[in-house]
Amino acid sequence: MSKVKYYYDSESLSYRKIERKKRTTFKYVSFFILGCAFFAFIFVFIASQYIESPKEKAMKRELQNMQLQYELLDKKMAEAEAVLTNIEERDNNIYRVYFEANPIPEAQRRAGFGGINRYKDLEGFDNSKLIIESNKRIDILQKQIVVQSKSLDEIAILAEEKEKILAAIPAIQPVSNEDLTRMASGYGMRSDPFTKARKMHWGMDFTAPRGTPIYASGDGKVVRADSGSSGYGKHIRIDHGFGYLSLYAHLYKYNVKKNQKVKRGDLIGFVGSTGRSEGPHLHYEIFKDGARINPINFYYGSLTAEEFNKLLEHASLENQSLD
């Protein structure tokens, strides 16, 4: 029940009831409503600054999770970049050097992307700089991987080619040391056994009993196995590819035929004394790009250092050849 207020009327010497005017009531009500609205606004403002709503809390957790994921992604990218850099260094300084290939320039490996702005769609956001930088790093990393992948493909081809070269080069002595009587004559100026005149001896003579096995000194294809070349008698020629060809002369008989493919160490024939020969021996020559070269440099695949030095000593003597 609302309180009733009175005032004393001095003229009538009596108390009279105070009647509130409607205008005054409306004014009080308006002030009350405005006051409530003001305090409500202040409360909402303070609450919005210091009290998080469930939606804000969820968004804040999501943002924190995204930041954590970015940090993990950034760490993984840094690790990938470090691994790739290590591979690139080995590629340039070991693999490409070993296979005699030019290193890939650093500018080519680290090159960015010119032309149009690839990241225009990522501009205008709160974290645009961070997003653009991350995308640039990923794009450059992908390009580096592509460059390195192509380089490794090239290295694989070079390695396969190198393996073929190493297998093809005439690298072993064609007659085993156990079967040798002696190394009769080496490459160079020697005395002809028939004319006694000094002339160039284009190969090495290995003295051995008739029928001693002769082995292919490298992988290749038999291009000749006949006696149609003057002075060589029965002889074999093997094309090893890469410009190398080996010749085995004065054979007793063949163990291969023309166009047959052979591997290093395969039995191809037997020592004899056919053609222009003074006694049973193998005359052995090596050609590189059509020119005769000294076979002494091609025995690293079958001789020890001591055996090679002994062979080199005998090969350097200017004695009489056997053909």
Rank of each mutant, 00 (worst) to 15 (best):
Y284K: 06
K257G: 09
E163A: 12
N127H: 07
S128E: 12
P103I: 06
E285N: 13
E56H: 10
K221Q: 13
I140R: 13
R96Q: 11
E81K: 11
L63Q: 12
V29C: 10
D121I: 02
K263Q: 12
Y8H: 09
V223K: 04
L303I: 04
K76A: 14
L152Q: 05
N127T: 06
A249D: 00
G301M: 09
L251H: 08
L317I: 15
N294W: 00
T195S: 15
F26V: 15
G218K: 00
Y300P: 00
G231V: 09
Y215L: 14
N65Q: 15
E56N: 06
K3S: 11
E106W: 07
S149I: 01
S30W: 04
E89L: 09
Y95S: 06
I155R: 02
E178F: 12
A225E: 02
F287M: 14
P213R: 06
H240Q: 11
I155F: 02
F45T: 14
N102A: 15
R137A: 07
A184R: 02
Y248C: 05
S53C: 02
V271P: 05
E106S: 15
R292H: 10
A216R: 02
N297R: 13
A111L: 12
I169G: 02
E56C: 07
R224L: 13
F242T: 00
M204P: 01
A159Y: 03
K234W: 03
L68K: 11
I236M: 01
S246K: 06
Y300K: 15
N255V: 09
M77A: 09
V271F: 05
I18A: 04
L322E: 01
G265W: 02
D179Y: 14
F308L: 13
I138R: 12
K5M: 09
N127G: 04
I145A: 10
A37C: 12
F45K: 12
G114C: 04
A80D: 07
A291P: 00
I296F: 08
H283L: 14
G220Q: 00
I165Q: 05
K288E: 03
Q67G: 09
